[in-house]
Write a protein that binds this DNA or RNA. Structure first.
Lengths: 234, 234
DNA sequence: GTAAACAGGAAACGCCGTGTACTTCGGATA
DNA sequence: TATCCGAAGTACACGGCGTTTCCTGTTTAC
């Protein structure tokens, strides 16, 4: 993004080593779950001492935070490109594409989903740091826009309706989606919950023993969801 | 349940010690999350060596399994008593009570919810063992009955509709809810997803930064859900 | 009364994250 | 070109973890 060039050799090596660390960590996570990420394991694979990692990440949780940021960004990418593949004139189609992409990304990266939306790391506490938050805003803002497009602007633009929303979130979301009504913002969260529910159940293994075709189940839910929003189909 | 009496002194002590272990483990979990459950910690608190625990649970995962079973049973208790507090003539009210109880139990026992529905234990794999499965059946069967009561028996009792359901699940659920149609069974899973979604988001801390009153949000969702099922209100 | 089953202790193995002390070496500066 | 600073890295230690092996003492069953 920014254009400062890390000319120095040391700087370059640093970036490369950091990348190598996160790459190995993501591979460890994909293989054995978020809980299996270990500094010692990464260092072993890199042929280094565990202590060496501390030159790049002050603590294990800092590394985890970086991984969450990267993973969430990859999810946001998937969602946005799936949405953009459907013409803007078909808001319900876009919303369904977005929701479908959410599930498909999760099925393809189950450990990533658990990393971002679960709390598989024993003592980890999310810090609200910048890259994670940026990805969250992309995802949340995108969903709000889609729901707004489906459900219309809504009659109530009065300020009273915003009472339920924390000021911090409000500032961000109204900045990103200017003509948002409280009704739509609330609806968007409920839509998010509806998508998240089936996906979380499936990823955590509660759905498969009980239904042979989670994709179809999810498709049915998305269809009904889009219809319930009452937007115009293409 | 079964009436075999553990007369022998050893048997009695064994039961008591087992209870003490699980009690301490549940307390540890409630305090610091499912990942903080440790054999050594439990033993320390009991004034014993870690080795002693192995006389009662062959491995840490066996202990976790027992805890999941107990926790899920407590959840099932809450759900059933909430449902039974509403007269059977009001199926929608019963469903809403059930869903509300789900959220309230989760809010009151967040770590328990994570233990049962997440995978906070690093390398843990659920074994389909008896107590866990029994609780799952109570919960799942109960929900299916409620949804059936709301949505009616459904026209399609033909066998073809059952294709999507695994045989094992089918046997259990049709045994428990005899006059179940595939349409209702599928609907019940979608209802479950809808409830689970908002609760999971809230428990994992994704909802609070974004909405000040998750209970109201959930209430709105439950209301719309019940309406969409089209059952008779009281 | 005796032999088997069982509860539990002591110590060890190999993991883990992290802290301290010390070496090595790239790179800016005198 | 010589020098010095700070960053990268190693070696080692600490305490915690689950689990195992070997051992002792008690309880139960025959």
């Amino acid at each position: 993004m920014s254009t400062d060039q890390p000319v120095s050799r040391r700087e370059r090596l640093r970036v490369e080593t950091t990348r190598e660390i996160t790459t190995i960590a993501l591979r460890q996570m994909a293989a054995d779950g978020p809980g299996a990420i270990s500094l010692r394991g990464i260092a072993r694979e890199m042929g280094m001492t565990a202590r060496a990692i501390y030159s790049y990440f002050a603590t294990r949780d800092d590394l985890i935070t970086a991984l969450i940021g990267e993973t969430a960004a990859s999810l946001a990418d998937s969602l946005e490109s799936a949405r953009d593949a459907v013409p803007g004139a078909d808001p319900r189609g876009r919303l369904i594409a977005w929701g479908t992409a959410l599930r498909e990304w999760a099925v393809a990266n189950p450990e990533g989903f658990r990393l971002v939306y679960g709390d598989s790391i024993p003592g980890y506490q999310a810090p609200g740091g910048s890259p994670v938050e940026r990805a969250a805003r992309r995802i949340c803002g995108g969903l709000n826009r889609l729901v707004a497009a489906c459900a219309g602007a809504g009659a109530g633009h009065e300020e009273a309706g915003w009472a339920a929303f924390p000021a911090e979130y409000l500032a961000k979301i109204r900045d990103e989606v200017p003509d948002l009504s409280p009704r739509v913002a609330e609806l968007a969260l409920r839509v998010w919950g509806r998508m998240h529910g089936l996906v979380a159940l499936e990823i955590h293994g509660h759905l498969r023993p009980v239904h042979g075709d989670p994709a179809a189940l999810y498709r049915a839910e998305m269809t009904e969801l889009a219809e319930s929003l009452g937007g115009r189909a293409s």
